[in-house]
Design a protein around this nucleic acid. Structure first.
Lengths: 206, 206
DNA sequence: CTATGTGAATGATTTCACAGCT
DNA sequence: AGCTGTGAAATCATTCACATAG
């Protein structure tokens, strides 16, 4: 299959969220127009996005809500549960440990690491912070599907290397650096200071 | 000036971070090639990005590190301090209150609101959580430059409306919905569950 | 001789517009 | 009649390649 743009994948997530709301309301069908409205895009964009993966609608009618939701979950790989490790138990790391939104969507934080002895042993949500030294042997013995790096920038690359070495294939990186990883490792970045800088730019230039 | 792509603005932030590192090391000049390497892009991309705003380099030599850093801060609007309000003192909201990275870059969290009486009055980093009811009159009396929405999705749109009404022109939205705001309000979204879903997609399709 | 700045070329994404199903 | 699915067109972003300046 053709390579799908990241922007398309992200919109599919948004459509899915809308569909899950409609499912709860018991709505049977939805039009590309409705999905576009909620997703902040256009109906043509919705139809094009979906068309990369098949034709799921009925002309003149729209899309069956539960069926399209199911298809999108399948496309996004959400038909399973994921095991997640958090690397770094600082502010953001702790917040993510407590965050309910992940579990609800099938992403289970099962392990947290930090190198600060003061943090090792602390528990939140039933997960105990472990020493970073144990990371490598640990992950090899009992792998995770994804890792979230929430450490200061200077440590991030070295930790990413260790994660990759231990077989991790998906990393969500909060450190404000560009990680270097092999091609078969998926990396997404969240950079909070950068978002504020983008807002700053937006304030001046519009 | 021509409308600049969001992706370009984000790369400028990355270049600036690299430059600040080089400034500390005392490096005098840098080439587009070096900047590209750190920013995970190409030298042509770096030069094109910069060319939208002027010509800051010297042919045969590269860019003067302190000067280019200064220019980028200016372009991004970082020559000033920003006053930021956080709306929602849950997990993520509290983590952001404590986060050091914002202050360092000139973004000062001066106010936090929550509607939960149990949270009102709590203090972190010298900022006391205030009742959400006070938000409107407060912001009109003593405005902020940016707001960060960190509430559950169902409340987010209503709060965005109140913020806009109170004159806020820049919003960083962590709620997993697409906010509707007037054209003169800048909105950036951070959607953590969506990032994990994008990773999930990436794991299956590569 | 080196590295920028930039039109021109290529590639990617979005929008248009309409044929074709239900 | 209504709404999808999709080529074709338009727009937008990246890469190329080279003339130009130090």
């Amino acid at each position: 299959m053709r390579r799908i743009a990241d922007s398309t994948v992200r919109r599919l997530s948004l459509y899915l969220r809308t569909l899950e709301g409609l499912e709860k309301e018991g709505r049977a069908t939805v039009s590309s127009e409705d999905l576009a409205e909620q997703g902040g895009t256009t109906s043509a964009q919705v139809r094009k996005d979906l068309s990369f993966f098949g034709s799921f609608g009925k002309r003149g009618l729209g899309y069956a809500v539960p069926e399209l939701a199911h298809r999108l979950r399948d496309i996004l790989g959400l038909g399973r549960e994921y095991r997640v490790a958090i690397i770094g138990a600082g502010n953001i790391g702790q917040a993510l440990m407590r965050f309910r939104g992940f579990d609800q969507r099938g992403f289970h934080v099962i392990r947290v690491y930090d190198r600060d002895p003061a943090k090792v042993g602390c528990e939140w949500n039933g997960v105990v912070v472990q020493d970073e030294e144990e990371l490598d042997t640990d992950l090899r013995a009992d792998p995770v599907d994804m890792a979230i790096i929430v450490t200061p920038a200077p440590e991030a690359q070295r930790l990413a290397d260790r994660l990759v070495e231990a077989g991790v294939k998906a990393i969500l990186n909060f450190a404000p650096i560009q990680l270097r990883t092999p091609d078969d490792v998926v990396v997404k970045n969240v950079n909070l200071a950068l978002e504020l800088e983008a807002l700053s730019y937006g304030l001046r230039h519009r």
